[in-house]
Simulated assay, not measured.
Amino acid sequence: MKKDINILIVDDHPAVRSTMVDVLKEEGFITDKAENGESALKKCTENKYDFVLIDVQMPKINGIEVLKTLKAQNKQIPNFIFFTAYSLPEIQNEAMKMGCLAFLQKPIQIERVISILKQSKGTTVLICLKNEKQQNLLYNSLISKGFHALQTLNVDEALIQLRQINFNYLILDCDWTQSEHDIIRATIKSLSSNTVCFESNEDEEIHDIENRIFSHLREIS
């Protein structure tokens, strides 16, 4: 990985900041840190970051307000990854609607953070197919072509991933129930996500699924 990805880590707990800085530096990222929302706003105004990893709950200015303020200033917004110790669906939905990259629960799984940081530099695909063999073949083929793919075993798991990460594409099995399809599409819509959903089934060849992705990428390029 090129050592040119700049990350701002924002948390009011010094131990959390220091741990994340140390681990991410070892992974080759360039890191900076801020102890609260006010400091984060100042740093984002003065510096250019690729990512901001920020706690939702902080004194004075919380993580959501930092992103709102930057958007109101028409600044070039880094990719925001929120984390919180609390289960707050309404705040999570608000964050996703504002275009955050991910919304994660504490305690922070640093491996998960690193995976998201690396995935975000390419095209991300969430695969939710019933046929395990087909799903594995598609996953391996996409990875070999430079995509960042994630497999899910069922619709419930897919919904969790969609609420945490803004995927570019979702490959969804046609054979899930209509109500499951409706829930998936309603979730994507409620999050104001740009996720493109392609329906497929076990009869579709892997290269045909990939060609639909490639065709769409050409259309939007």
Rank of each mutant, 00 (worst) to 15 (best):
K2V: 07
N6K: 15
I9K: 02
D11T: 00
P14L: 05
R17V: 02
R17I: 07
L24Q: 02
I30H: 12
E35P: 00
E35C: 12
E38I: 09
K42C: 08
C44P: 01
T45F: 06
F51I: 11
D55P: 10
Q57H: 14
P59V: 03
L67G: 01
L70C: 09
L70A: 07
K71L: 15
Q73C: 05
F80M: 03
I81C: 07
L88P: 01
K97H: 12
L101C: 15
A102H: 00
Q105A: 15
K106Q: 06
K118M: 08
Q119I: 00
Q119E: 01
K121Y: 13
G122E: 14
I127A: 01
E132A: 11
K133G: 08
N136T: 10
L137C: 09
N140W: 11
I143Y: 14
S144I: 05
S144K: 12
F147A: 05
F147H: 07
F147S: 04
T152N: 08
N154H: 05
A158W: 01
N166M: 03
F167K: 03
L172N: 11
D175E: 12
W176V: 07
W176K: 02
S179M: 13
D182L: 15
I183L: 14
I184G: 06
S193M: 04
V196K: 15
N201K: 05
N211I: 03
F214T: 14
S215D: 14
L217F: 09
S221R: 10
